[in-house]
Simulated scan of single mutants.
Amino acid sequence: MPDLLIVSGLALGSSGAVAVAGLLGLRFLRGRSVTAHLCMLVTVTVTSVVTAVVVVAEAMFLSAHDLGVLGVVLAVAGVVSLGFSLLAGRRLARASVWAAEARAREQALERSRREVVAWVSHDLRTPLAGLRAMAEALEDGVIEADERTDYHRRIRLEADRIAELVDDLFELSRINAGALQLTLGEVPLGEVVSDAVASAAPVAKAKGVRLVADPSPYGVVRASEPELGRVLANLLVNAIRHTPAEGVVTVVGGSDDDGGWVAVSDECGGIPIADLPRVFDTAFRGESARTPSAPEDPLGSGGGLGLAIAHGLVEVHGGRIAVDNTDCGCQFTVRIPAPTA
């Protein structure tokens, strides 16, 4: 019994000294990475065990041969244990970092969803209230005969805008859910640009904005033509919406070793530096006012989803989209990869 007490005391004292040193080391590592803390924890654990065994073995008056064999066994076991534990600790640290990033992305996505629900609810409530008021007025017969045509036109315009907003929400939900399936192929970028410009030309004319497209060759990219056309259409509509009458919207493009690129420039006056990182956020409009535009406006106020959809579609293609301020406005640049050899 006394021998057991002596052995226990020696083991406790030696391992305790290592543990105290380890606590001081952890205090020194305060503020460092999770990997550093795990490495220190593993090193202290293995070292305390090895130290206790060596101290007790010395106290047992083992022969030099036995001590040598024990030392070799402890050295090999310690190296293997340390190596495995450090490797596992690093993987665990990386996994914890990935988990933290995943939680942060999930929280950001949830905040974005709540914001979209709140903003879209407001955007839907206003036109629905107008539709109800006009329908009730027509139903009660309080509208003069010569005003009914105008009421019907306004109802149709509001219904079209609600349908457009619902379509944007559906498209954005497919992108965020990863459910968007693209049929990729070799697409002449110039043809997509030409079609998008032709479709946006009547809207630009109605607002008094001049739309200019560079006829230079744009190259061939690997893309899905409908989705790429949607990207350019959204950028053009956004540029026309924020360009004042008599302003100019310019479309240029080209190709390089990485693929094709298109840049849409407007004369919106520029975007505040603080807002540039938020331009592609869902429901971001660059303004705090939520008052919708007049029904006669050919573009409307927009649901704040066009740029978010364009950003998502470009990323699905493996491309990049960026925005920069220019002298009199801003420029959106889209890059799409070249076809694989």
Rank of each mutant, 00 (worst) to 15 (best):
G130R: 12
P217W: 04
V252G: 08
A88K: 12
V7Q: 14
V251W: 10
L211P: 15
P127G: 01
A198I: 02
S81N: 06
L182V: 03
M60K: 08
L92Y: 12
A204N: 14
P337H: 03
L165M: 15
L184I: 07
V314H: 02
E110R: 04
V54S: 11
E101M: 03
A196F: 11
V97E: 15
L180I: 03
A310Y: 08
D123E: 12
S216V: 00
S48T: 02
S8P: 06
G229H: 05
V42N: 14
L180K: 07
P272C: 00
N238D: 15
D258S: 09
A308Q: 07
G304R: 02
P217H: 03
A19W: 15
V203M: 12
R156E: 14
A239T: 10
V7A: 14
V193T: 15
G319H: 01
V76W: 15
G178P: 13
S15P: 13
D195M: 04
V316I: 02
H242R: 10
G190R: 04
T333S: 08
E315C: 01
Q331H: 00
D160W: 01
V231D: 13
A283C: 09
G247L: 01
G300C: 02
A135K: 07
A177V: 00
V97H: 13
G208C: 02
A341C: 06
L232S: 05
A274T: 12
P292V: 00
S194D: 09
R278N: 13
A36V: 04
A213L: 00
E315W: 01
V50A: 14
P337I: 00
V142M: 10
D257L: 02
D257Q: 11
P277M: 00
N238L: 05
T243M: 06
E225Y: 04
V50D: 15
P188G: 00
R222H: 04
V56Y: 15
I271Q: 07
A95N: 10
T291L: 06
S199P: 11
D140R: 10
R290Q: 15
A57H: 13
E186Q: 09
A263E: 12
L138C: 11
R103W: 02
D3F: 06
V44W: 09
V323R: 11
P244S: 02
D195E: 15
W261C: 08
G185N: 11
A283D: 14
A64H: 13
I321D: 15
A206F: 02
A200F: 02
E144Y: 03
A137Y: 09
F28A: 05
L5Y: 12
R222A: 08
V231N: 11
L62Q: 10
V53A: 12
R335A: 07
A263G: 09
G312E: 03
L24W: 13
G269T: 04
E225D: 04
S265M: 04
R113Y: 10
T340W: 05
T183K: 11
N176P: 05
R103C: 05
W119R: 11
G286I: 01
A64E: 15
A11G: 05
T282Y: 08
F284Y: 14
T35F: 07
L228M: 07
I240Y: 14
S81Y: 03
H317C: 01
D266F: 03
A133R: 10
L228V: 02
D167V: 00
L305F: 12
G16R: 09
V314I: 03
A88C: 13
E267F: 03
A129V: 10
L184Y: 05
